[in-house]
């Protein structure tokens, strides 16, 4: 297995579509991939999580219970899933909404202020792809180009006008992660 990624947030944050986009791109690069959503009863605002398992061989369990990468989009998700990350794993937080402190010290923590960045770009809806851009930069599971290709397939025709903003978001996320890497190295 290469990565077991868990994306946790609430409805409306684009967690499920981010997971699907990533899964689609992995497939494009010839990897084995499984995507499994988990959501609450409420249509809006409820729990909305998904797991994406990426591997170079057949995937046995598609359930992500011990993520190598955890993305948390809100405080509740941090509280709930922080403990599950494997030691040495990666924890990306959406620091625009996650104010609580991370208690783990055996994982790599990368805060990305996704909502603020998205606002700054003038596209508040692309916060999720800023996070995805950071994930791609930090893990290298698939290339940004492949994800860009996948956008066309995953987004319905009528939303294709939003593709440039989403691409920009991926780039922005990647740039923020690069900056973070430099800080880490210092």
């Amino acid at each position: 297995m290469m990565e077991a990624i868990y994306i946790a947030g609430h409805g409306g944050q684009g967690t499920l579509s981010t997971g699907q986009l990533l899964a689609n791109a992995c497939l494009k690069e010839g990897k084995f991939v499984a995507y499994l959503p988990h959501y609450g009863v409420e249509k809006r605002g409820g729990v909305s999580n998904c797991g994406v398992t990426i591997s170079n061989q057949q995937i046995s369990s598609p359930f992500v219970t011990e993520p190598t990468v955890l993305i948390v989009m809100n405080n509740l998700s941090l509280e709930r899933y922080e403990k599950a990350v494997v030691p040495g794993g990666l924890l990306i937080t959406n620091s625009s909404l996650v104010e609580n402190a991370v208690t783990r010290n055996d994982v790599r923590v990368v805060p990305i202020a996704a909502n603020e960045e998205a606002e700054r770009m003038g596209h508040p809806m692309v916060a999720n792809n800023i996070i995805l851009g950071a994930l791609l930069e930090l893990t290298g599971v698939v290339s940004v180009e492949t994800v860009a290709d996948s956008l066309k397939e995953v987004l319905p025709e009528r939303h294709h006008g939003k593709i440039p903003a989403n691409l920009q978001a991926l780039e922005r996320g990647a740039a923020l992660a690069r900056k973070h890497k430099l800080v880490d190295q210092r």
């Binding site: 699907q20 959503p37 598609p62």
Partner: peptide, 9 residues
């Protein structure tokens, strides 16, 4: 039910 929601190649 989750198998219906699961996405795979």
């Amino acid at each position: 039910g989750i198998m219906g929601q699961m996405m795979e190649a």
